[in-house]
Simulated scan of single mutants.
Amino acid sequence: MGENKHIEELDAFAKKYVQEVEQDIPSLDFTSNVMNTIIETKSSEVFKATPLISKKVWFLLFSILTVCIIYVSKGKSILETWTISNKFKFKPKLDFEFPNLFQSISVSNTMLMACFFFTLLIFIQFYFFKTRFEKDIDS
């Protein structure tokens, strides 16, 4: 019961002050002023396109892909020559051995070429979409 009285008081209060508020009447050229403002602002000021994947992440992904391709195609021998431990003759002793997970994996040249061209086509597609959407935003 007390809640209904409180709601009725709020309703009466709102009605009283809504009736007292003056109505704003826009000027005669309001629409043209708004349209001129919209036309004057450039789309680059309103919307700044930012890439979903930054350049650092692309570089990291490309590096990982390159290392994986080199590892699979050349095997461990080329990676062992690049390590710092061989250069400085530093070989720490480990009490445990890592299993050779990739020892039995062999990838054919056809598969490597297919992965390479697939990745190349993805990059071309990204470039195509980027330029197309930038043209749409600018115009």
Score class of each variant (00 low, 15 high):
Ile69Gln: 11
Ile69Lys: 08
Ile70Asp: 08
Tyr71Ala: 12
Tyr71Met: 02
Val72Met: 12
Ser73Ala: 09
Ser73Gly: 01
Lys74Cys: 13
Lys74Ile: 01
Lys74Thr: 11
Lys74Val: 07
Lys74Gly: 02
Gly75Trp: 08
Lys76Met: 03
Ser77Phe: 09
Ser77Ile: 04
Ser77Met: 04
Ile78Asn: 04
Glu80Asn: 14
Trp82Gly: 12
Trp82Cys: 14
Thr83Trp: 07
Ile84Tyr: 13
Ile84Pro: 01
Ser85Glu: 15
Ser85Gln: 15
Asn86Cys: 02
Asn86Ala: 10
Asn86Val: 11
Lys87Asn: 11
Lys87Arg: 12
Phe88Arg: 05
Phe88Lys: 07
Phe88Gly: 01
Lys89His: 15
Lys89Met: 10
Phe90Asp: 10
Phe90Lys: 05
Phe90Pro: 01
Lys91Trp: 03
Pro92Met: 06
Pro92Phe: 10
Pro92Ala: 12
Lys93Pro: 00
Leu94Ala: 07
Leu94Met: 02
Leu94Gln: 06
Leu94Ile: 07
Asp95Thr: 03
Asp95Arg: 10
Phe96His: 04
Phe96Pro: 00
Glu97Ser: 05
Phe98Trp: 01
Phe98Ser: 01
Pro99Leu: 03
Pro99Gln: 06
Pro99Cys: 02
Pro99Ile: 03
Asn100Glu: 06
Asn100Val: 01
Leu101Tyr: 12
Leu101Trp: 13
Leu101Ile: 12
Leu101Gly: 02
Leu101Phe: 11
Leu101Met: 12
Phe102Ala: 03
Phe102Val: 01
Phe102Pro: 01
Gln103Cys: 02
Gln103Phe: 09
Ser104Ile: 03
Ile105Phe: 14
Ile105Cys: 04
Ser106His: 14
Ser106Arg: 12
Ser106Tyr: 12
Val107Cys: 07
Val107Tyr: 05
Ser108Ile: 09
Asn109Ser: 08
Asn109Thr: 13
Asn109Pro: 02
Thr110Leu: 14
Thr110Ala: 07
Thr110Asn: 02
Met111Glu: 06
Met111Thr: 14
Leu112Phe: 15
Leu112Cys: 07
Met113Lys: 09
Met113Cys: 03
Met113Ile: 13
Ala114Asn: 10
Ala114Ile: 14
Ala114Gln: 12
Ala114Arg: 05
Phe116Val: 08
Phe116His: 05
Phe116Ala: 07
Phe116Leu: 13
Phe117Gln: 04
Phe117Cys: 02
Phe117His: 01
Phe118Trp: 11
Thr119Pro: 00
Thr119Phe: 14
Leu120Gln: 07
Leu121Gln: 01
Leu121Met: 13
Ile122Gln: 03
Ile122Phe: 06
Phe123Met: 08
Ile124Val: 13
Ile124Asn: 03
Gln125Val: 05
Gln125Thr: 10
Gln125Ile: 02
Phe126Cys: 09
Tyr127Glu: 06
Phe128Tyr: 12
Phe129Glu: 14
Phe129His: 06
Phe129Ala: 03
Lys130Met: 05
Lys130Ala: 13
Lys130Pro: 00
Arg132Ile: 10
Arg132Ala: 07
Arg132Asp: 04
Arg132Val: 12
Phe133Tyr: 09
Glu134Ser: 08
Glu134Tyr: 08
Glu134Ile: 15
